[in-house]
């Protein structure tokens, strides 16, 4: 759901964020003072909001310690984003034509449906071992591709299939045929669904990239960063990284929604 909607929505949203941070702080402090603890949890090891904030600020940019260089969160975000964009462009380039073909032609639909229906049920993470095994490089991009391509295909098919047949009739009486109908009626009519598929796909792709980076190691990437920080016991940095993942994902979603509003005006 979009933030800041409804009566006083934004004010309530701000209060809820402040309230959550306060609760988080109180819980950790109580655990550390041995006053209260949730059974079976090591609450005391969780960083407080202030520690997390300091870790976030402290590790935001690249720093050099003597001979060693640690990448900043900014660099990790950039690396992960670039992978998601690369995988996303690939998924879009493959998924949209496939979806149009499968939605528009019964034959193509029947040929590809069995594969799509089985393969789309394999989570992107299940592909990680194979990606490591067969790909020399770009394994994480491939995982993003797998995560994104199916939402795009399925939404494109849906969009194509829900093209109003009367609009196709109208185009025919106006002289359009074959490719003209696809280009001038089917694709524009499916566009809102295609963009919706892209939005859902980006959400999946963002989750997939973090998981992939934990396994398919490279010096930069948010998944790698939080895993590494966890390994080193630097939990404040780790939690800061997690929050960054959530915030970046949120803004990706919002930017597609804004794009939709701006460029797909007709779908009131």
């Amino acid at each position: 759901m979009k933030l800041g909607s409804g009566k006083n929505g934004l004010i309530i949203n701000i209060f809820s964020i402040v309230g959550f941070i306060f609760l988080w702080h109180v819980l950790i402090v109580l655990a550390r003072e041995d006053i209260f603890n949730i059974p079976f949890m090591r609450l005391r090891d969780i960083p407080t909001p202030v520690e997390t904030w300091n870790a976030l600020v402290g590790s935001m940019f690249t720093r050099i310690y003597g001979p060693a260089l640690t990448y900043g969160i900014i660099n990790h975000v950039e690396a992960s984003l670039i992978r998601v964009i690369q995988g996303g462009v690939l998924a879009f380039a493959v998924g949209v034509p496939l979806g149009i073909g499968m939605g528009y032609s019964k034959l193509i639909g029947n040929i590809l449906n069995p594969m799509v229906e089985i393969v789309r049920n394999m989570p992107p993470m299940a592909w990680i071992p194979l990606a490591i095994f067969i790909l020399v490089s770009g394994g994480s991009i491939f995982i993003v591709f797998i995560g994104m391509v199916f939402p795009i295909i399925l939404n494109t098919i849906y969009g194509v299939k829900s093209t109003d047949p009367r609009l196709i009739d109208a185009a025919k009486t106006l002289g359009a045929s074959g490719s003209g109908i696809v280009m001038k009626v089917v694709i524009p009519s499916a566009l809102p669904s295609i963009v919706a598929g892209l939005r859902i796909g980006l959400g999946v792709g963002w989750m997939a990239i973090v998981a992939a980076e934990m396994v398919i190691r490279s010096p930069v990437g948010l998944g790698y960063f939080i895993w590494n920080m966890g390994d080193l016991g630097r939990y404040a940095e780790m939690v800061a990284g997690m929050i960054v993942i959530g915030v970046v994902g949120y803004f990706m979603n919002i930017s597609i929604l804004l794009f939709q509003k701006r460029f797909i005006k007709w779908a009131d």
């Binding site: 109003d164 009367r166 609009l167 009739d169 109208a170 009486t173 009626v185 524009p188 009519s189 566009l191 797909i264 007709w266 779908a267």
Partner: peptide
């Protein structure tokens, strides 16, 4: 033939 449809059938994106 120029066809005029019952429920308009206009292209909503145009």
């Amino acid at each position: 033939c120029g066809f005029v449809f019952q429920e308009y059938a206009l292209f909503p994106w145009r």
